[in-house]
Amino acid sequence: MAEELHSLVAPYALDALDETDERSFEEHLALCERCRGELAGLREAAAALAYTAPATQPPPELKERILAQARSERPNVVPLRRKRNWTTTLGIAAAAAAAVAIGLGLWGATRSTGQDALARVLSRPGARVMAMGGSGVLAVAPDGEAALALRVADAPPGKTYEAWVIHANAARPAGLFRGAGVVKLARRVAKGSVVAVTVERAGGAPQPTQKPFLASQETT
């Protein structure tokens, strides 16, 4: 029976199973590490087949429809409870992401412009991800290398955002940035730190002059 189920991995990767077989295989998949490993590679190859269909411009209203619907669902998307789950799920998953990045070689990476700081931190085994007050995420590798990905408006004229690593009641500057995007922190984040962001005068400050408007939980 097990062999029978193993043999469904390729048709499953192609979405070529009927409902009954699909259900049996998914039950099997939950228990079978070998099939999960195999599926990851076969899925990548199956998805590559999509590139042989001619890319076709969808009508512009489709994008608007999707975004409007997505925005209308947003209030339900980040309840507090989920954020907590999120940290653990992503933490566990970062190792898998790293394995994939290596296993896939460039096939995955060509698509990604690849080298941004967040992707690099996420690709490290044991990396953890935490929410930054609903405005983005903080990713921290086990050695403390860290990156922020934030969606914030540009800093007002004459001002800058400044990131801080706060540990044992001492805040140390960790980099300046102007607006949304990914920022690699200039300072390592030790366990038990809080990463925070303030608005400072252009050029930055040696110590925060304001209450942070974004802060992470204590890192673990």
Binding site: L67, R74, L118, A149, R151, G181, V182
Partner: peptide, 16 residues
């Protein structure tokens, strides 16, 4: 300039 993976992280924080 962001990778697809980083964009997905932002989508997970409800960034439309």
């Amino acid at each position: 300039h962001l990778s697809d993976e980083s964009l997905l992280s932002l989508v997970a924080s409800s960034d439309d």
